[in-house]
Amino acid sequence: MKKIMNKLLQLILVLLGITILVFSLLYLIPGDPAVTLLGQDATQEEINRFKEQMGLNDSYIDQLTRYIGGVIQGDLGKSYIQNESVVDIVLSTLPATLELAIVALIIALLIAIPIGILSAVKRATWIDYLGMIFAQIGVSMPVFWLGLLLILGFSIHLNILPSFGRGGSVFEALIKTITTGNLYYIFESLKYLILPALTLGLMSAAFITRMVRAAMLEVLQMDYVRTADAKGVSDSMIIIKHAFRNALIPIVTIIGLQFGNLLGGAIVTETIFAWPGVGRLIITAISQRDFTVVQGGVLVIAFLFAVINLIVDLLYTLINPRIRS
């Protein structure tokens, strides 16, 4: 319990640090939001009036304290452009990003764990080499390129999957399918998710594969594995129950980090597939100099990242009883 409290305290400090950092960076970036927003035709008077209204003429410290004060009360300000609360804007895009990241992670794990284990067990055979070639290609292939290739293949040539957009919330579609018994809803929703999730998931899969392989290789050389083997325990039992479970700690860490990366790193994928998530929101806001939205978006992603790390820390204790004490 004390440990959890400690972690929570750390979390708050991290978030405060991020808030100050993000605010300061955007404050220092050259370029005046008023000029970007009001356009080339704007007169100096109009620009001054806008700055006065938005409080952009106040000192750095004044603006920062006002912002932090707002954040503590759950108020991330108002978008310069849309004239709407930043909290509402970011929260409206968050489900799309979470959905994409979760499905991408599931795809990554489904690919990475079998390949990683197989590569480790069949070390230095063609299976291992094939697995590692996959991982190498996956790690080094740019996301935008893979995304466009998938669109070319599945949307233009095969014409079986949509090339862009989101077919509504998967969660809602699932509920609808369960209540009506009509599989159409869930398929309709998933159809849009497949290509972006695959694009994002393959990158992570490549990375996680290497980690799984490395962790498994280490564990497979342990004495207790040899003992189990000597006792006549079947190979599959050794791999799954004895080796993989112990290899899980580094793997869980990396999965946690990867999930954070998927949330923040979905920016390119979201842009290519026109996926209406937080990443795209941030990119659009940066180009429009909609500072409050950028700050809000980054803060929410950072918050999720920190929370996931906390969850990973707690998971260790479940996986490894030694940490519990």
Partner: peptide, 18 residues
């Protein structure tokens, strides 16, 4: 009106009939 920010995707979506 569908919002598709990437120029190449927008053309690809037209080609695929989306």
């Amino acid at each position: 009106y569908f919002i598709i920010p990437d120029n190449s995707t927008r053309v690809a979506s037209l080609e695929s009939g989306d």
